[in-house]
Design a protein around this nucleic acid. Structure first.
Length: 590
DNA sequence: GAGGCACGCGCC
DNA sequence: AAACGGCGCGTGCCTC
């Protein structure tokens, strides 16, 4: 395309263009914005089209209603990093119901799914549009042009270079997907890629809407932790007093945050350790080691969850707008950053600081025992299946069968906790040494326990061993939805085979959990939009979804969330019921 | 002073 | 030495 397409600034012209491309199997869409923040930055240009025909649309010249024609009812929209464009379009005012129901495919996520784990031979795992355009379409995209947009207020400031850049972006996106399409079909990854596309709107909404936080309450917790840290540090100084160096004022000058230093001074106290991790410190039982553990608890709070955490509060919304990576982990799990909302301390007051204003509510729902239900499904173990179908307590049942005595949460709880440690550990591919550390037994005893466990549940052993063998044989592990994680590169690189076997056992379970949670998110967001509810997702923590809604619709919201989470789980797990625990409150809690 | 790595630890 | 899967972040510490 050598000619510069003219910019469309008229609704009828846009409708005419869309009619002209109505028979294309899919349309690529891209936006040029003044920045990355949908609450602050503006959409300058929206590009849409195919490999041969592209339109550049002045986003400011048309009303949101006029722009809705960009989202076709029948055609799939292909975007690179779709959640970004979707949140910017939502910020521009395009109707939520329209955006939520768009058929979306994301070329970036598609690339991640297609290559998951075998990236190293090409581009080192990078999935930028410029990389894919080069690889799949032989196109060179000059990303340096993009910087120019940040300084602009209006499309009229765009010169020929910028317009050409914008045009080539959408053309490249279309061509990239055209190349990916046959790979999707032949790889058996259609279901996974469709799932990722469906969830894009949910990620967009979570990032744009943000998670409500009571900053003052948070600060109070940090201040309190900071005071306690000071006390714990004084106790530490006391415990190290015989060996501590002193500064000019007689103050102890050990840096307790330096593992090197701590190990050195512990050695002077007669404790020769190789590591300062909590379990090792605890094992010594030494007062100095225990004092260090106490200090670390508060140091962690003040550093990771301290004042710097609140720097992420948005000046305009007063809320946290994290970045979600839909495929943050090779298993298929998502991740969150800036800030990470998936590692907020639980069982403390911190979660209580996340509260919406007014009479709005948070609906918190989590899959209960999802990974063990997935293990039951995948292994088809009869005892696991029967227990979950009858609503029994799996850990107690397993313990009573292993130890030939009656076990419940109140009867022989120590046997139940041993069974629980094994049940959960197996999901991680745990061995005897790990179990021994977990339950505080000898490795021999742990071995005997595992033997007994596997004799009782041969289907579990068979399934896990087969997962590991299949991964070595096929070069990949896969979830119940067919999401794959290739081990080729790691095998070639000479990674430890036992480590690979553990990953191969864990990935199908952890990944299936991620698959069902993502499907639930996608369905929940659409249900809210279609019923025009004042409700939206605000966080997801792997097997837990958090929704904010108006108090008036909280009952309907709860029903949708629970219903969609259950039915999404049932798409993958059919032999046992998938159960959801839900809590409604003024703040985030289980 | 920036960048990268290891460690330790918060979550599931 | 550890021996349990997946993340992101703060800190120390090293290199450039």
């Amino acid at each position: 395309m050598s000619d510069i397409p003219k910019v469309i600034d008229d609704a009828s012209e846009l409708r005419a263009f869309m009619a002209g491309v109505a028979d294309a199997p899919f349309l690529a869409l891209d936006t040029e914005t003044t920045g990355l923040d949908p609450l602050v930055d503006k959409v300058l240009l929206i590009q849409i089209g195919t490999a041969s025909r592209q339109a550049l649309v002045d986003a400011q010249a048309l009303t949101p209603e006029e722009l809705t024609v960009l989202i076709p009812d029948e055609q799939t929209l292909v975007m690179h990093n779709a959640s970004f464009d979707l949140k910017m379009l939502a910020g521009l005012g395009l109707p939520i119901a329209k955006l939520a129901n768009a058929s979306v495919v994301d070329t970036m996520l598609t690339e991640q799914v297609l290559r998951n784990g075998r990236q190293s031979e090409l581009s080192n795992g990078r999935v930028g549009l410029n990389i894919l355009a080069e690889r799949y379409a032989g196109m060179t995209l000059d990303k340096s042009v993009r910087g120019a947009f940040t300084a602009m207020n209006h499309i009229s400031e765009m010169g020929e270079a910028e317009l050409r850049y914008a045009q080539r972006d959408v053309e490249a996106t279309w061509k990239v997907f055209a190349t990916q399409l046959p790979m999707i079909k032949s790889s058996g990854l259609l279901r996974t890629i469709a799932l990722e596309g469906r969830a894009c709107w949910s990620w967009a909404e979570m990032e744009r809407r943000g998670f409500p936080i009571d900053s003052e309450a948070w600060k109070a917790l940090v201040t309190s932790a900071s005071d306690t840290r000071k006390e714990k540090r004084a106790a530490l100084d006391e415990a190290f007093s015989e060996v501590a160096p002193r500064d000019l004022f007689g103050q102890c000058s050990i840096n307790y945050d330096s593992d090197q230093e701590v190990l050195r001074y512990l050695g002077m106290l007669g404790l020769e350790l190789q590591s300062t991790r909590e379990q090792k410190l605890k094992d010594t039982g030494h007062p100095a080691a225990l004092a260090l553990i106490a200090y670390r608890t508060y140091q962690k709070i003040v550093s990771t969850y301290g004042e710097s955490f609140l720097e992420h509060v948005h000046a305009q919304s007063g809320r946290l707008h994290p970045r979600f990576k839909p495929i943050g982990a090779k298993t298929g799990r998502a991740s969150s950053s800036e800030p990470n909302l998936q590692n907020i301390p639980n069982g403390s007051e911190f979660r209580g600081c996340f509260r919406p204003s007014g009479d709005r509510k948070l609906v918190t729902a989590d899959y209960s025992g999802a990974e063990l239900r997935i293990l039951a499904e995948a292994s088809a173990d009869p005892v696991f299946i029967q227990t979950f179908c009858e609503g029994g307590d799996l850990h107690s049942i397993v313990a009573s069968q292993m130890f030939q005595t009656s076990v419940s949460k109140s009867e022989n709880p120590e046997l139940r906790s041993r069974a629980k440690a094994i049940n959960f550990g197996l999901v991680y591919g745990m061995g005897a040494a790990g179990l021994a550390a977990q339950i505080g037994s000898s490795v021999d005893d742990a071995n005997r326990l595992l033997d007994r466990y596997f004799r009782q549940y041969p289907a579990i052993r068979g399934y896990l061993d087969n997962s590991a063998r299949a991964a070595i044989r096929n070069g990949y592990a896969e979830t119940l939805a067919g999401r794959k994680y290739w081990f080729i590169d790691r095998l070639r690189k000479g990674d430890d085979e036992h480590s690979l076997a553990r990953m191969a056992k864990n990935m199908p379970i952890q990944g299936t959990n991620a698959d069902m949670a993502k499907l639930a998110m996608a369905r929940i967001s659409r249900a809210f939009a279609n019923r025009h509810l004042d409700a939206f997702l605000v966080n997801m923590v792997h097997d837990e979804l958090v929704v904010e809604c108006a108090g008036a619709c909280v009952d309907e919201v709860r029903e949708i969330v629970v219903g969609e989470m259950r039915s999404a789980g049932a798409e993958f797990v059919t032999k046992v019921p998938i159960e959801v625990e839900v809590n409604v409150g003024d703040y985030w809690s289980h």
